[in-house]
Design a protein around this nucleic acid. Structure first.
Lengths: 105, 105
DNA sequence: TTCATGCGCAACCAAACAGTTGCGCATGGC
DNA sequence: GCCATGCGCAACTGTTTGGTTGCGCATGAA
């Protein structure tokens, strides 16, 4: 299982989000291909892809001498879950506050 | 308007998420108070709160010699929106792929 | 007025990070 | 077999970042 915290760290970087978006929109791609669009080295992209993969946000498959990376959108569930939980906590606190104000009336 | 990218950076740090959760659950608090729970300096907490505030995730209010910080949960909308967009892109690509496969049949 | 509390600002430090260059290895086309 | 392509690994660099300590200022209580 991948640490949810890794997902948060992974999406923190703009370049990484961009790579992830590109994979979602255009489908599987290689580090070399992606490096063409963005204006950075293949190595830099490869590092980002490794981080995305470690966070469970991308899957790699070696085909001949190429390594194709594909996005794994379900990995963002962890972030959605966290946001939903915070929202629940917030609402819960407001409700408790309101009811305690009612008690005073 | 706050840069959405700031929100991504803000939630990337575990301590920051923890502070944000605490504010959502327990309501407004000061840097000194929060520093007690977490095991770091008031200064460190103050920096985190400044980052959260800059990202639009927290609002501060000075009361006497205290500065109370409150969570702003709506600020997470930007993240939710991004995730939803990526999901749409992903589904759209899959649909296009399926239809192009149909054309071959 | 005096004193303790709480805060903000600045300097500093070690670790993490995004990015680069350089090299060697494997795979596919000629 | 030979060469180009694509990749992974390693070392290095500048910048960002989470954290600390120290100081001075303002506010509330005695």
């Amino acid at each position: 299982m991948t640490d949810p915290s890794d997902v948060f760290a992974a999406i923190a970087d703009g370049t990484r989000r961009q790579i992830f978006e590109t994979l979602a929109i255009s489908g599987p791609a290689t580090a070399t291909g992606l490096a063409g669009d963005l204006n950075i080295t293949r190595q830099a992209v490869a590092k980002h892809l490794a981080i995305l993969a470690a966070a469970g946000m991308a899957n790699s498959e070696r085909i001949g001498r190429e390594t194709r990376f594909e996005a794994e959108p379900t990995s963002l569930k962890a972030v959605e879950t966290w946001i939903a939980q915070v929202d629940r906590d917030w609402q819960h606190r407001l409700a408790a506050l309101a009811s305690s104000l009612d008690d005073l009336a």
